[in-house]
């Protein structure tokens, strides 16, 4: 296909912009790490309490070769995945139920709102007594944090379904299940996906908070343990690993979103 010079120019500009953004992102991250490293090396900051990128890298490397990293990483990942998946399915399921039975929704609405604004960490001590000092408490805590928000956001998405399409389905004689299947669910994929993205951070908050409270392994445990023995390298390494986990989860959900929204 022959392209005019203007078109070639346009494409070139778009590509340039994309590359510029990517290069800038890399430079930004690199500069941050480099400044941090240099400040620590030349004693502008105290590396004992502020650590440094190289020290963190060394710490992570040591954790990796001793196999400890895998233990802690997998412990946290298992909790995250269970809480995230449970939250997603329960959230979707309960939202569907509340949509199909609007009167039920009306009745429990104030309770949902109340529970939603309750700081869930307040329930932590009680959860430990109920479920024990194990990862059941951690998963339960994460679930409490992500579930209510999921229900409310997904339900709100359902209620915003296109009224004209709803009328069309009614004119076909559709029942509630048909409406759910053909309109509400496929029409809410966007909302569901953004709820899942929100849930990543909610679940992470819950899991780490839970690990702070009870666990004997996991990234949250590493961070708490690091603080207790004043090993800030370990604390900041733990934070780096958390950053990696949240980015990884985000990418997985984005891929799922692309898969479900092909029609766009």
């Amino acid at each position: 296909m022959h392209l005019s010079n203007e078109q070639k120019d346009y494409i070139r500009r778009i590509r340039f912009k994309k590359r510029f953004v990517l290069v800038s992102q890399i430079i930004l991250g690199f500069t941050f790490l480099l400044t941090w490293e240099l400040c620590s090396k030349y004693k502008i900051i105290n590396s004992f309490i502020f650590s440094s990128p190289l020290l963190c890298f060394k710490t992570i490397w040591e954790l990796l070769i001793t196999g400890e990293l895998l233990t802690h990483f997998s412990a946290t990942m298992i909790e995250i995945v269970i809480a995230f998946v449970l939250g997603a399915f329960l959230g979707l399921g309960i939202a569907i139920l509340l949509y199909l039975v609007p009167i039920l929704n009306k009745i429990i609405d104030p309770y949902l709102t109340m529970i939603n604004s309750l700081p869930k960490v307040a329930l932590g001590p009680m959860l430990i007594i109920w479920c024990g000092a194990n990862n059941k408490t951690i998963i339960f805590m994460a679930l409490l944090i992500n579930l209510i928000v999921s229900i409310l956001t997904i339900l709100n998405g359902f209620k915003n379904a296109d009224k004209i399409k709803l009328k069309l389905l009614n004119s076909f004689g559709a029942n509630k299940i048909d409406i759910m299947r053909y309109l509400i669910l496929p029409g809410s994929i966007g909302t569901i996906m953004s709820t899942l993205k929100l849930n990543i951070s909610m679940t992470l908050i819950g899991v780490i908070m839970g690990e702070f409270l009870v666990s004997k392994r996991g990234i949250g445990y590493l961070i708490i343990y690091g603080t207790q023995v004043f090993n800030l390298n370990l604390v900041i390494s733990g934070i780096f690993i958390l950053l990696f986990i949240s980015y990884l989860m985000f990418i997985i959900v984005s891929l799922a979103e692309k898969f479900f929204c092909k029609y766009k």
Partner: peptide, 13 residues
């Protein structure tokens, strides 16, 4: 049969 104000085509179908 009913034809509405908007085409109401389902974008995902």
């Amino acid at each position: 049969g009913y034809m509405l104000q908007q085409d109401a085509l389902f974008p995902w179908l």
